[in-house]
């Protein structure tokens, strides 16, 4: 029997430490992470990117995988990239918007 964990908050918190390489804003605050599920040590992340042509996709995926593997019980990380719903600035967290505002970058 497989045990599907409903408590994935710790993984969301962990990914708050993974920064977008272009802006020092976490992938969570950027709104790139759509879902996280954990089953018997396998963490399945559903995510998107800001643009299809994002040059940092493999870099970000690698950072996410490495960070989650730091958690003691995690044996495996599977990342599924989806494009629906498409990312828009509406997915930025309030924290991300505030930080962008401080740098003079529009989040609209």
């Amino acid at each position: 029997m497989t045990a599907v964990s409903t408590d994935t908050q710790k993984y969301w918190n962990a990914l708050k430490e993974v920064m977008d390489p272009e802006f020092p804003i976490s992938v969570v605050d950027m709104g790139l992470i759509y879902d996280i599920q954990e089953t018997n040590g396998a963490v399945n992340v559903t995510m998107t990117f800001t643009a299809v042509g994002c040059a940092c996709t493999e870099w970000i995926k690698g950072d996410i995988e490495n960070r989650l593997l730091e958690e003691q019980e995690v044996r495996e990380v599977n990342i599924e990239v989806v494009w629906d719903p498409p990312w828009t600035v509406d997915r930025l967290s309030e924290e991300a918007r505030e930080r962008m505002k401080n740098w003079g970058v529009s989040s609209r």
Binding site: V52, G53, V82, W83, D84, P86
Partner: peptide, 9 residues
């Protein structure tokens, strides 16, 4: 679902 973002861009 694969093409919507691409169409937007």
């Amino acid at each position: 679902s694969r093409v919507q973002k691409l169409i937007n861009e």
